[in-house]
């Protein structure tokens, strides 16, 4: 029984051409991102190819400086590629950060409604949709609170509700639970998994927490550092919902951690 299969890094762009054009897919082909010019230029990403199936959950894992966040802004279309291509992304995508997740001067409902307002949703409908979304993330009754009155976990719930308000098929998450305690994070994993399945979202989830990646991902993409390249793609064929402290999760996490550690020490040495 092979629960875990370590796939080879996806190679050249040749096999990307026949990609299914379903909504919510993300196909990266030889993506290069360089900042600056001349000798001072920094290559953040160097030939990253990756296929994200519609409705799948992909975790991007790597040491700091591996260009995970750069990759997300490229997918979001917030930044331009130096070379390569990103296809099939149904934009606009929804995005969620660790900090600052919310505008502090708006109420909880105001933050969620902002995403709706941009899409031209009328006032009454906005109010109703925001209430529904806050319901979805189990924050009913907090609509009129300000962000500073909420705990970190609750703030991330609001951020999630706002991301959902964008009604995008692709959700990009940049270490969204990085600043939370283990218990809160565990609960939010369950919530995120539930919402992801209910709404059939395609999720790209950046983290440096290996167990979190294995807990959540259908595939875990291990990136190298400076420049960022795909080192390995792990398909996680475990039943859901998974427990972050279960043996299969821990085993695969240990395997990936070893690979990550080797990569990090290669750079340190």
């Amino acid at each position: 029984m092979s629960l875990i299969r370590a796939a080879k890094p996806q190679g050249t762009g040749a096999r990307v051409g026949d990609a299914a054009r379903a909504s919510g897919a993300v196909v990266l082909t030889d993506v290069v991102k360089r900042y600056g010019r001349g000798p001072g230029a920094v290559t953040a990403l160097d030939g990253v190819s990756l296929r994200v199936e519609p409705g799948s959950f992909t975790c991007l894992l790597g040491a700091s400086g591996c260009g995970k966040s750069t990759l997300l802004s490229l997918v979001a279309g917030l930044d331009d590629l130096t070379a390569g291509s990103i296809d099939d992304v149904e934009r606009p995508v929804a995005m969620m950060f660790q900090e600052p997740a919310l505008f502090p001067w708006l109420t909880v409902a105001g933050n969620v409604e902002l995403a709706l307002r941009v899409r031209g949703v009328g006032r009454a409908e906005r109010r109703q949709r925001a209430a529904e979304l806050l319901d979805t993330v189990r924050l009913e009754g907090f609509a009129h609170k300000r962000p500073h009155e909420l705990s970190g976990g609750m703030r991330q719930r609001v951020a999630l509700a706002r991301a959902l308000a964008q009604d995008a098929s692709v959700l990009l998450m940049d270490e969204p639970f990085g600043a939370l305690d283990a218990m809160t994070r565990d609960i939010l994993h369950d919530e995120l998994e539930r919402i992801w399945r209910e709404r059939e979202l395609t999720v790209l989830f950046v983290t440096h927490n290996v167990r979190e990646a294995v807990r959540l991902g259908d595939q875990v993409v291990l990136l190298s550092s400076r420049p960022g390249r795909v080192l390995n793609v792990y398909d996680v064929a475990m039943d859901r919902p998974r427990r972050i402290d279960s043996a299969p999760v821990a085993n695969l996490a240990a395997e990936i951690t070893d690979a990550l550690r080797a990569e990090v020490s290669r750079h340190a040495g």
Binding site: A76, L78, F97, F103, L106, L114, V118, R162, Q166
Partner: peptide, 27 residues
């Protein structure tokens, strides 16, 4: 104003008017 609020506004696809009204002025 924290530059990340501008990023946040960009990911939410705020237009210039909404950006000024909802982010710049309150900030």
């Amino acid at each position: 104003i924290d530059g990340r609020y501008a990023e946040l506004a960009e990911t939410l696809r705020l237009g210039p008017a909404a950006f000024i009204g909802r982010v710049v002025l309150p900030g």
